[in-house]
Design a protein around this nucleic acid. Structure first.
Lengths: 316, 316
DNA sequence: CCCGGCTCTGAGCAATTGCCCGGCGTTTGG
DNA sequence: CCAAACGCCGGGCAATTGCTCAGAGCCGGG
């Protein structure tokens, strides 16, 4: 009898679920139809859910991405996580990731609440900024985490801040320094300069830090672009570097390395664990160790990546 | 650009749908997450639905039944329709159908509003009544549509009304007559009797008529049980009879036949189209023509059947 | 047989949702 | 180039939903 009762209750739950989700009835209509009280109809619908009699299927590439994002967020304790579909034709193109990062930037810029946005550099950052349509944002402040002067003295091509400033007319605070200087002493000196210390103070209060994540290996972007020499690269590798965020080289555990080029880096320091929302945007097999490190060290508490990378990150 | 916008809107709709249905977020949370207004989040969820990005799957035998019931209801303009799962082991056993018919009866009896319930006879009716637990229903009235005296003079074994009365203690009005009498003249006379005309008057005001549907063929129940002779059966077949409801023989179009045994039938007449809720309960391949007829003639405006029969009815 | 504990029920309320409205930006036609 | 038309947006409100709580009915133990 108990099983009979239970059976008929599940039958009713299925009826209620069908009427609610598939036929689109209100719970009141269901109650009248099944001749029960509205409260019971609600319980039946909820039972249908909890017994998994009904399942939802989202027929859209985004569904898998959402699922991966939720797992990443859970696994690494992230405040924010987005996964964009991987483009099968060009698995390393940052299109999707840049779009999502751009959307995050744009949403923050569109908000009424004045925000301080600190951004890094690199191709992904630049691509993200390219997503933004021109808009007037006089209430927001943009601040750079990284020096904007290349080794050859020119402004860096991938200076995302400058481009974003063009587009938004927001108040902007570039870091008027070379990325790396000649010596630790010189860095100490330069950091005392008014404009520089002001940038650092502002960046410390940022509401959103948006950064790329770079790998440190033979094809590391900081090396390829000539910011550091081959010897310096080898030294960092010897010190255990696997990746960098805003120039700060980290080991596999995500600890910022105390030594090597980090001593001559003018970038704003990044607290670990991150305090404000700090989102890393990166994708690709070669960046996996770097991304893992940034997550482990809690340099970042947000991640924007693509489907393939997300899957790899979740595979232990 | 338009397609880009549309694409990203659908992407967002998919995100919203995922967050709402799969992750169980409220629309407010979704709005915050996607940085849009709550109203827009609602629109996205609704878009996800209307674009059929998300589909609901009900993993339960009942799902197919609900679908069939909805189609029957639509096709035949029914007020009430239920389809019970077919029992593969015994496809003609009325278990599921009787259970649903019983549930309908029980729900009506449990209601506070005093109801007049008119019921027919037959195995399905009797099985339906057997579903009902004992209960006190002094406010309801039960009335029989069909005479309760068998050809051999005994009370019919399948007299559902008597059994239901035992169980419910409701006020009851059996029809104290043989199902068929000897002649039209005798019928006219008997119908004038006080108790009989009272039953007919009450039945005319019934809130619910619950009837079985019988086939008229060589194995017709009215013939097998000895209510009519073989010659009478042949005559009714000659007049086009394919089925009967409460004893009233109908042709394939559902028109009550004017002639033959119908002239000596003491049952309460059934208006066509049915006015009050009039539910037929029947299943089985052999009853298909009879069920079709009852539906076509609008003798019934409600149907309880099983899955296999429902499918056959929908196959034109 | 009676009692305590348990589950289930429906009333009522607060949160959530659906939708209508005026306003704004964009597009199309003149 | 302007103006009308269109569609989208967010505010606000009514309907719907989820949930709590007290009470009723049921079961098992003494």
């Amino acid at each position: 009898m108990a099983s009979d009762n239970e059976r008929s209750r599940l039958d009713d739950a299925a009826r209620a679920g069908w009427l609610y989700y598939i036929a689109g009835n209100t719970q009141d209509e269901i109650a009248r139809r099944l001749k029960v009280s509205r409260a019971t109809a609600q319980r039946l619908v909820s039972l249908c859910l909890s017994e998994r009699l009904i399942t939802f299927r989202l027929e859209h590439p985004i569904a898998a991405c959402m699922e991966l994002a939720a797992r990443l967020q859970d696994r690494f304790g992230l405040v924010h996580c987005e996964v964009a579909p991987t483009n099968p034709a060009a698995p390393n193109a940052p299109n999707g990731v840049a779009e999502r990062a751009g959307a995050l930037l744009e949403a923050t810029l569109r908000a009424d609440k004045p925000a301080i946005i600190a951004i890094g550099t690199g191709r992904t950052m630049r691509a993200a900024v390219e997503q933004i349509p021109p808009m007037d944002c006089p209430n927001h402040q943009l601040v750079s985490l990284v020096g904007n002067i290349s080794p050859d003295g020119s402004a860096s091509f991938f200076d995302a801040l400058a481009r974003l400033t063009d587009l938004t007319k927001a108040r902007h605070y570039p870091m008027p320094l070379p990325v790396f200087v000649a010596s630790e002493a010189e860095r100490q000196q330069l950091l005392k300069l008014g404009p520089v210390s002001r940038v650092r103070a502002l960046a410390a209060k940022a509401d959103l830090n948006l950064v790329g994540i770079g790998q440190i290996d033979q094809s590391a972007q900081v090396y390829v672009d000539g910011f550091i020499s081959h010897d310096e690269l080898l030294e960092m590798l010897r010190l255990g570097a696997v990746g960098e965020v805003a120039g700060w080289a980290m080991d596999a555990q995500g600890r910022v390395i105390d030594g090597g080029t980090n001593r001559r880096l003018t970038s704003v320091p990044l607290p670990a664990p991150a305090r404000a929302l700090t989102v890393g945007a990166a994708l690709g097999r070669s960046k996996l160790p770097a991304i893992r490190a940034a997550l482990k060290g809690r340099i970042i508490n947000g991640l924007i990546t693509d489907e393939a990378t997300a899957q790899a990150l979740l595979k232990e």
